[in-house]
Amino acid sequence: MPETGKITTRTENNIGTISFYHPKGNALPGKMLRNLAEAITRLGRESDTRVLVLKSRGEGAFCGGASFDELMSIDNYQEGKDFFMGFANVLNAMRTCSKLTIVRIQGKTVGGGVGIAAAGDYAVAHQSASVKLSELALGLGPFVVGPAVERKIGISAFSALAMDAGSWKKADWAEAKGLFSKVCATHDQLDEKVETLAEQLSGYSPDAMEELKTMLWKDTDDWELLLEERAEISGRLVLSDVTKEFIEQFKNS
């Protein structure tokens, strides 16, 4: 598997499945983020797809968030904004996709991965799937993913997750706050739940599900501009010497 990672898609029995993989903890470099947003948009437009399943490969981390190597290489504002727009575009693709989306979470997820979990319409997780927003500890902040996470768990829980940037919150915490819809004890149960729910949804009325999706995401029409503004904040902060030092320390820890 190449160091750049890989996005794969398939559609079977009206279920569109998108899987991502990166050898470094399923991190998401800029190219993978672009490809992921494109895959969500493309499958969402296909008439033979009625429901989407988004997952990563392996039994380790679901998503390691941003690529530290790529963060360290950013040396101007436009590069910084463009990188964080990658996460913004994925979240907006999930938001505007007319198909209900199930996110399968098999392990730890951090930063942008928490945003992806929050942007899912139904998140099914393994009991090992703890979550962390580590951005503040890196000299940044969970600005781009913030609207998605706050929408799902509320301002109080989001504040606790964002400020306690060095601590993991366990799966039962995420389920209690509404970030996870269901937590499973085994990987077999995780797969069974995802498959069963996807099969059920694939047999429902596409029009009814599209109306439900629209209702679930009401009052988010400003996210195109909002997430771009948040990407601009992160794009500025990532250039500071303090932030680069924090990222280097985090990378080598």
Rank of each mutant, 00 (worst) to 15 (best):
P2C: 12
T4M: 13
K6N: 11
T8L: 08
R10I: 15
E12Q: 14
N13F: 14
G16T: 10
G16S: 10
L28Q: 11
I40N: 10
I40V: 14
V51S: 01
S56V: 06
S56F: 03
S67C: 10
D69H: 11
S73D: 04
I74N: 05
Q78V: 15
K81D: 12
D82T: 15
D82S: 13
F83V: 09
R95H: 10
K99R: 13
V103Q: 02
R104P: 00
G107N: 01
G107P: 01
V110I: 12
A118W: 02
G120E: 03
Y122N: 01
Y122S: 00
Y122Q: 00
A123F: 09
A125P: 00
Q127F: 09
S130E: 13
S130H: 08
V131Q: 05
K132C: 11
L133C: 10
G139A: 06
P142I: 06
G146E: 10
V149R: 06
V149D: 04
R151F: 14
R151T: 14
K152R: 15
S156C: 12
S159G: 02
A160F: 00
A162V: 04
M163D: 07
W173R: 05
K182L: 15
C184K: 13
D188G: 15
K193S: 14
V194A: 03
V194N: 02
T196C: 07
A198C: 02
L201S: 01
M209W: 08
E211R: 15
L212A: 07
T214D: 09
L216G: 03
W217S: 10
L226M: 13
E228P: 01
E228I: 07
A231K: 03
A231P: 03
T243R: 03
I247L: 05
E248N: 10
F250E: 13
K251T: 07
